[in-house]
């Protein structure tokens, strides 16, 4: 069996929403170079709707595919809905990831949430901080 599902390979080989948004309303960056993956997500938000999302990712195939899939999943969605994005949903949409790559999908979820938090902060929109636990980005790495 191949390492990755066809969906993962499709999103890796043809990543959607690659790039940066210069005048983004929210930017989130998670991961660290030492661990081998960094994800940065840029959001454009208009009237409570994520109208555009782009990403830059340094990382393995599944990190790139997870970023691509996550941006696809949140584009056009209301902010409240985007807040509910889970790494599990990203994995399911990708038809699964190998167990030791699951942290890539966690990074995707964290990057999206970090971008939303940035948007809330910039616009003084109140939120429940409990919804943004101190991003233990790269938790697996720090455990090590």
């Amino acid at each position: 069996m191949a390492l990755y599902s066809e969906k993962v390979m499709d999103h890796f080989l043809h990543p959607r929403n690659v790039g940066v948004i210069e005048d983004a309303d929210g930017v989130g960056e998670v991961g660290n170079a030492k661990c081998g993956d960094i994800m940065k997500i840029f959001l454009k938000i208009d009237g409570g709707i994520v109208t555009d999302a782009k990403f830059s990712t340094f990382g393995c195939g599944s990190a790139i595919a997870s970023s691509s899939m996550a941006t696809e999943m949140i584009k056009g969605q209301p902010v409240e809905k985007v807040m509910e994005l889970t790494n599990k949903a990203v994995v399911e949409a990708l038809d699964g990831l190998p167990a030791y790559k699951l942290h890539c999908s966690v990074l995707a979820e964290e990057a999206v949430k970090a971008a939303l938090k940035d948007y809330f902060d910039k616009n003084s929109i109140p939120y429940d901080p409990a919804q943004f636990p101190d991003a233990p980005s790269c938790a697996s790495c720090e455990m090590h």
Binding site: F12, L13, G36, D37, F58, G59, C60, G61, A63, K101
Partner: peptide
């Protein structure tokens, strides 16, 4: 850049190589 994504793309180009990246 990260090694695994490099290897996957090289594989697409028909080149078999390896990397010392964690992934």
């Amino acid at each position: 850049i990260e090694g695994e994504s490099l290897l996957l793309l090289l594989d697409q180009a028909g080149i078999c190589a390896s990397s010392g990246s964690a992934c």
